[in-house]
Amino acid sequence: MILHPGIIALLTGALIEVALLIYSSYIGLVIIMRWNANSSTEEQLSLERKTYLVSTIMSFVLAFSILSTLLFIYTVDGMHRLFTGAMCATGSLNANPVGWYALYMKISIFFLASIWIAVNYIDQRTEDSPLVKKKFILLLCITPFLFSDIYLQFRYFLGLKPNIITSCCGSLFSKEGGGMAGGLSGLPTHPMEYIFFSSIFIYVFIACVSLFSSKGFIKYLTGLMAIVLFIISLASIISFISLYFYEIPTHHCPFDILQGHYNYIGYPLYISLFGGTVFGILTGVGEGLKKSRLLTIQINNLQRKWTITSIALITIFALICIYPMIFSSFTLEGY
């Protein structure tokens, strides 16, 4: 199953990424052990300069994680014919559930790499580079994720046995289907709609309050709520939002909305959701980094921008979700 062009591409990319990250981790380890901001030695200078390399590599990793998630979904989607019963990406992923873990891993890498880049940004803008050790410890924590990502992808593609009878969104994402995914689509639609819209409302409210409040806990709460909202939103996309786009009451697929058939609506939808979540989380993460006066000044500036961006993106996300509910003739009454 490995000799598929898409799989070769994904694995090539992943290998490159891991190689770059191993190198960065090595640099990271040296920096954690030998960094001394008060020293003017040539070694210190060379360490400082290596942080540029690492930050470039991390930007590469972030960009790559986005692209590879998309390519992964497309590859998996294109393979559904190989599995009896599979009709879209969901079906192919179910053919070997490791695929789901690979996808979760990619999403985690996206969030972690974004946080790293933000921490690096703050660090580089503060004169005494106060976050150096923290950011390289974070880097060392990201590396295992990349390893898992490549390992899970290998496991997934190697483990695919064509002709496995799998359940697809029709059956798996239907109320009869078991597992978490089945549970999600089985969630009663109306309560789910209430939960979704109220959590959006609560999030936007908390985030707005945090804009005007200087209390730390409300910023942490914003970050936390962003994560909660992210999970609720994914559940809602599977449970009812996707249905409005497909106008089919049984099609709960979170991937098909990325296709041209549905005007690529999935892209703005996910971009606004992921973006809004990242900036929300950053609001909380930033709060935890206010350890010195200089940092506090830096972060206060950024935090404001982050929170506003997050509010804007989540609002856009909500509008995209609401749009078909208002303007399409399709209703979910009775489902």
Partner: peptide, 22 residues
């Protein structure tokens, strides 16, 4: 570049220990 030791004060600011980008 940076000195190995000592202070360099430019317009009232000690630059001897600043990272390169500053």
């Amino acid at each position: 570049n940076r000195p190995t030791s000592g202070k360099i004060i430019v317009k009232g600011k000690d630059v001897a220990k600043l990272p390169e980008r500053f």
